[in-house]
């Protein structure tokens, strides 16, 4: 059988069609290879494999997000949102809880019970923004876990005792039954508000002069007439008054 040769009799040199054929095969091969090697979705959205997004999106969540907790822990959520920890997400304290959300009966999130845990945020550090509530862990009620005194879901700001008696009970009780019962503590002590928060750092004043008591008890004092009087110049002038009369329970020996 005669071989088919389309170029027979033409002037095209024999090697040209062969070269053309080889090139054609190479180019087609390249295109085919490219078609098969360049991943499917490459270039669909940009110079990358669009399918990569699926892998990335399929990544398993560990943190459920606080919206998820609301469904079952509605009350805690409401309490938290009304308190000082409103910005602190549940999982910031209880750790990742996506597994707990999908199986609450079996998987329980962690419950912090160490002082160190709260101190992560509340320990004093000069780098922290001013105004952020910080404590000195050595002096702030050591030995006791924080949630004994503060509700972790709605911690209260410092509760300042309104009365001096909250801390000076004995003095207050003595004074209450003494001749000085009618006098306020602040008549004799200038007590700044900070004294109630940091009592050892900020101390109230104490009378230092005989003339202070004299302000009520001296003969010429401008005070209610029923107050007993002494001659300030002659009444035991070598001593201050409280060396003989206890000011919170003054008695006449």
């Amino acid at each position: 059988m005669a071989k088919f040769d389309p170029f027979r009799g033409t002037r095209v040199p024999q090697q040209v069609p062969r070269l053309v054929a080889v090139f054609a095969v190479a180019i087609i091969g390249l295109l085919v290879a490219r078609y098969f090697l360049v991943p499917d979705t490459f270039g669909q959205l940009g110079h990358y494999r669009a399918a990569a997004l699926d892998t990335i999106v399929a990544h398993e969540k560990k943190y459920a997000g606080q919206q998820a907790c609301q469904l079952c822990h509605f009350q805690i959520m409401q309490k938290r949102l009304a308190g000082n920890h409103k910005g602190v997400g549940c999982e910031s304290c209880h750790g990742p809880a996506a597994t707990h959300v999908s199986d609450p009966a079996q998987i329980k999130p962690s419950i912090p019970s160490e002082r160190e845990f709260c101190l992560r945020c509340h320990e004093y550090s000069p780098s922290r923004p001013t105004g952020f509530p910080q404590i000195d862990p050595v002096r702030h009620n050591p030995m006791s876990f924080c949630s004994n005194c503060h509700d972790p879901h709605a911690p209260e700001p410092p509760v300042i005792p309104g009365q001096c008696s909250a801390c000076h009970g004995q003095i207050a009780r003595q004074k209450a039954v003494s001749h000085h019962a009618g006098l306020e503590c602040t008549t004799c002590h200038e007590a700044p508000e900070e004294h109630k928060v940091t009592p050892r750092l900020v101390r109230p004043t104490k009378p230092t002069e005989r003339s202070f008591c004299g302000g009520c008890h001296a003969r010429d004092a401008d005070s209610p007439p029923h107050i007993p009087r002494i001659n300030l110049r002659l009444h035991n002038p070598r001593y201050v008054c409280w060396q003989c009369h206890y000011p919170h329970y003054p008695e006449t020996p």
């Binding site: 990335i56 399929a58 969540k61 560990k62 943190y63 910005g87 997400g89 999982e91 910031s92």
Partner: peptide, 23 residues
Amino acid sequence: CTFCYHRIVEGLVPACVEVCPTG
């Protein structure tokens, strides 16, 4: 960092934002 892409496509915030206590 992926901005937690798997979270944000679901409308959640990235994990770091979720736990940041002070905003």
